[in-house]
Amino acid sequence: MTFDWAAVIAALPDLLQGLQLTLLIALAGLAGGIVLGILAGVALTYGGRLTVLPAQLYVALIRGTPIVVQVMFVYFALPIMMDIRISGISAAIITLVVNSGAYNAEIIRGALDGVPFGLREAGLAMGLPFRTVLLHVITPIAFRRALPAMGKQFVNLEGHLDLSGYRRGRTDSAGPGNHGRELSGGGDLDCGGDHLPARDQPARAGSASA
């Protein structure tokens, strides 16, 4: 069996298009996950009962269920429950935002908790409102503490990008047609690395060029 380089080159435009999609989903998931993580993390650390409980519930629920189940829920169950249409890409992004948000929340809670209490008091004792203390005293220190774990969380998120590939398998037989097709670019690109046995790749690339 010889390796068909021509097929690889012919597939490059498709792959690049897929890469674009991958990056879009990854960056959107990352940005949204950070925003949601900060909100939930701050609520976990400083919130009153009214904000702590929902945040704890959210974090426990998301960290306690597989991401595959979550994406299935967003793509199949949510549209039926709320009578809306969700495109494959949106479903992937929503899932990544909600999922990484929960993990980020715990990282941020840990980082905020790790800032010595005395610094907060020193800020308050100057007559600053708590939000200023949080923003200008606690955050700069917590940020450095959170960075390594957040970096790892991003790698995790990147590894989850293949979850759009699961949908393709479904949609081929049962699914909402076009969305599945559209997604297969992004899904397959990453699936190639993570899910499919390596030897399948040339064959698939070959069939794409055929």
């Binding site: 010595p116 005395g118 610094l119 008091e121 020193a122 308050l124 004792a125 100057m126 007559g127 600053l128 409102p129 200008h136 005293v137 700069p140 220190i141 450095r144």
Partner: peptide, 29 residues
């Protein structure tokens, strides 16, 4: 907050902001 602006406090454990220089610590208030 008005009271706190009028009453400076010095703590047993100093509680300086570790990410700022001496100068920046004093400029903060």
């Amino acid at each position: 907050r008005r009271i706190r602006l009028e009453a400076g406090m010095v703590f047993q454990q100093f509680n300086l902001f570790p990410n700022l220089t001496a100068m920046q610590n004093v400029m903060f208030g």
